[in-house]
Design a protein around this nucleic acid. Structure first.
Lengths: 113, 113
DNA sequence: ACCTAGCGTTTCTTTCTGGAACTTTCCTTA
DNA sequence: TAAGGAAAGTTCCAGAAAGAAACGCTAGGT
């Protein structure tokens, strides 16, 4: 089965994962929940390449999790803000945060957010 | 940043995703929550190739989300069962299930689990 | 005129994934 | 006792996706 065929899967979990289930998308969402909205912010904080970032943002907008909003007209600039739909996924990330804190402690440094 | 560098990231969400954040791992977990335990069951239900499945199962065992347990010694056979650690991620999948049901309705058929 | 910021896009190389057959170890059935 | 099958992986190859890093575009600052 191809990843793209998952969006009509019988299982709602599979359909959700067809949208947010890849390596970087959930990390972008985390950044959104932390208040980031701009391309450059995601690019610097997220760690993925700009290439991938542009692609994932487009997909998140298409599916209605983020909204692409012009915040400046003179030099055309857009940022990305969470929609209500996007907010509904926040609890899932919260669970992952707690799980990571508890089960995957950092070895190199003790800093934690 | 490479995916593998994520396991010592400052962010607990990132660390969690370094373990379960890829295309198929969460789908394997879904199967676990549905009661599947055997390699062949995952292979048939999940839709991923056996290749990838073997790799992901190994990783889930290494990190302690699943336990590889011999259920037959004569022909050596193993199955994979959730640990307590693994059970703790169930709520995240539940949220994704609900989100998918609500926000990504099926177009082709009306069957739903 | 030149530099910088913001938001992507392009190119090239490396890594990962999909598909399908193959292996190994036993068990069953004829 | 030979044939066939089941379970749990492995191996091989072609094609898709990701990483790195530079390039492009628009517009404002100096």
């Amino acid at each position: 089965m191809k990843w793209s065929e998952l969006n009509d899967n019988w299982c709602p979990v599979a359909r959700t994962l067809s949208v947010v289930g890849d390596r970087w998308t959930l990390l972008i969402l985390r950044d959104c929940y932390l208040g980031r909205t701009k391309f450059e912010e995601f690019a610097q904080a997220g760690g993925m390449t700009r290439h991938i970032l542009a692609d994932r943002l487009k997909r998140l907008v298409e599916v209605g999790i983020l909204e692409r909003r012009a915040y400046s007209t003179a030099p055309k600039r857009y940022d990305y803000v969470l929609t209500a739909k996007g907010e509904e996924l926040r609890p899932a990330l919260t669970i992952m945060k707690e799980w990571g804190k508890k089960n995957l402690p950092i070895r190199r440094s003790a800093v934690e957010g």
